[in-house]
């Protein structure tokens, strides 16, 4: 995140929109919410989310957070399920190119701001980078306790027994904790947080991460954050410890192991292969000469 250059006006050339679409007053309001969220890691800060020129579910929360923190010198990467080339990712990237005129990239290492839906990049993040998550439902307790008044009280008092009831139900039904995404985490030993629908495979990457992690929920009007180098612990039971998914094969294209794989159906005859969900990671490895069985 680079400080926006307020002096050089903020109207983006050509579009007529303010820099990064939102007006400066709105951006300041969102930045205040972000600062509060950073100050209280894992706590859901309410903010006055705006209508954005895209439907809910397309990442309006993440887009507003990104808009609020972008500076003219930032380099933006947008991923959806790990891929830079899906409609959603392409649209958001174009949106900011048009309204902010900033540079974009697909390379994790080159980006200063990465907006993501459902994944954390495989390449380790660095200090100075910001990861912005798009969040559909920020409240981890919602599943068992629909009353917002009650869930707020539970957070305030750190009464998180209910969260374990959910995990208990998983084990009772499936013999193991079957929650594979949006797996609840405890942040900085205090607030329990929904990490958005990322696979639990990515949960360990949130722990002690050098990058700043920001979460925006547009419909639900909440922002929360994990400051750099914060302890993030996935909830579990003593006799059913947290485990990430493991894959019994490497990526078919780049041969990477210990990465999150997507299943790709190849034909009508049941042909399929498993490839890196993180397209940039896969391409980078292949450019470096790594190959998988299908390459």
């Amino acid at each position: 995140m680079n400080a926006p250059d307020l002096a050089s006006a903020t109207v983006s050339a050509g579009t007529g929109y303010n820099f990064a679409y939102l007006d400066e007053g709105t951006k300041r309001m969102i930045r205040r919410a972000i600062l509060k969220a950073i100050a209280i890691p894992g706590y859901q800060v309410p903010f006055a989310a705006r209508e954005m020129p895209m439907p809910y579910g397309w990442g309006t929360g993440g887009v507003q957070v990104t808009a609020a923190i972008l500076g003219a010198a930032d380099v933006l990467k947008v991923i959806d399920q790990g891929a830079d080339d899906t409609t959603n990712a392409v649209s958001i990237r174009r949106f900011f190119t048009a309204t902010a005129g900033i540079a974009t990239t697909t390379r994790t290492a080159e980006a200063t701001v990465i907006q993501t839906r459902h994944r954390i990049p495989e390449a380790p993040l660095a200090e100075g980078q910001v990861l912005v998550y798009q969040v559909p439902i920020p409240e981890p307790l919602r599943f068992l306790e629909p009353r917002e008044t009650e869930t707020r009280q539970l957070h305030a008092l750190a009464e998180y027994g209910l969260m374990h009831v959910k995990l208990y139900e998983d084990i009772a039904r499936h013999g193991h904790i079957a929650t594979t995404y949006a797996y609840p985490v405890e942040v900085a030993g205090r607030y329990v947080m929904d990490p958005s629908p990322t696979p639990k495979f990515d949960n360990p990457k949130m722990d002690d991460c050098p990058a700043l992690q920001l979460f925006g929920a547009g419909r639900e009007k909440r922002i929360y954050a994990i400051p750099p180098h914060t302890r993030v612990r996935s909830l579990d039971f003593e006799d059913h410890p947290f485990r990430v998914q493991s894959f019994d094969r490497p990526c078919a294209l780049c041969g990477a192991e210990d990465v999150y794989l997507d299943e790709v159906v190849l034909d009508d005859a049941g042909g399929r292969m498993f490839v890196c969900s993180d397209t940039d990671h896969c391409e980078t490895r292949r450019a470096d000469g790594h190959t998988g069985e299908a390459a």
Partner: peptide
């Protein structure tokens, strides 16, 4: 089982 166990988990029992 979850209904009965809730209070236990509420007071910090973390052994399934």
């Amino acid at each position: 089982g979850g209904n009965v166990g809730e209070r236990l988990m509420g007071v910090g029992d973390r052994h399934y």
